[in-house]
């Protein structure tokens, strides 16, 4: 369940037990992972943006598989809802949160969108329900004069905005609107879910330190884009 993990409490998230233990210096514990956290009396538990696992900084996009593939006729419109698995994050309840832990519910995997030579490395979001699943509505419209079959949607991680409800395991991503233009598809963020809370994001500087990268690179990773052109197939 997402929400607060108070000092002295434990939580079970999809079979993974996490605890915030009292002591001289309070300790956050998950399986073999342990971290001292001072100065806070609780931690926040919420879905993690899919940028941390398997390796932070290695990819900047997510791939959402659509299986079975959908063939959209010229002028056709279709809305589908997918439930994909992301990771769980534990962060400090501070104004600028710091992630204490990010752990997956399934083995985090990656895929290449396009050719292996010059394609885009993506976090592959498996379909699935349960703990750390995020529902996302994908609205597809075809502006092409011939039918197009679509088996995946690829977006930059900055367009995959996750929201959640405290006290539940309910999480949703902002809608994705995909317009098919024959050779390319244009993906934009659609409606944000109502009544949900945005996932707290770490500050750029914190991510920078984590990745041990130069400022220029982190800027390129975090650049907010309005749309993404899928030009390497569907």
């Amino acid at each position: 369940m997402y929400g607060s993990l108070a000092l002295g409490e434990s939580l079970d998230i999809g079979g993974v037990k996490i605890s915030f233990l009292e002591g001289d210096i309070p300790r956050y514990v998950r399986d073999g992972y342990e971290r001292h956290v001072a100065g806070v009396d609780r931690l926040m538990v919420h879905p993690a943006p899919p940028i941390y696992l398997p390796i932070l900084g290695l990819f900047r996009h997510v791939m959402i598989p659509i299986s079975p593939a959908i063939t959209v006729a010229p002028g056709g419109e279709v809305s589908i809802e997918k439930s994909v698995l992301v990771d769980v994050a534990v962060s400090t309840p501070t104004e600028e949160p710091q992630y204490i832990d990010v752990f997956p519910m399934e083995i985090p995997k990656m895929a290449v969108y396009g050719r292996s030579a010059d394609g885009i490395l993506c976090r592959y979001l498996f379909e699935g329900d349960g703990a750390a699943s995020v529902k996302v509505k994908i609205n597809i419209r075809s502006d092409c004069r011939f039918p197009i079959t679509i088996s995946k949607v690829v977006v930059p991680t900055s367009l995959f905005k996750i929201f959640y409800i405290e006290g539940s395991v309910e999480a949703r991503a902002a809608d994705l609107n995909l317009v098919l233009e024959c050779d390319v598809g244009v993906v934009r963020v659609g409606k944000y879910p109502e009544g949900y809370k945005p996932v707290p994001m770490e500050a750029e500087q914190t991510l920078l330190r984590r990745m041990q990268l130069e400022p220029g690179i982190i800027k390129r990773i975090l650049t907010q884009v309005e749309e993404f052109i899928m030009d390497r197939g569907f």
């Binding site: 791939m63 083995i107 985090p108 995997k109 990656m110 592959y124």
Partner: peptide
């Protein structure tokens, strides 16, 4: 089961 092995290709 290996995170570094890609799903696609």
């Amino acid at each position: 089961n290996e995170p570094l092995a890609l799903v696609e290709p």
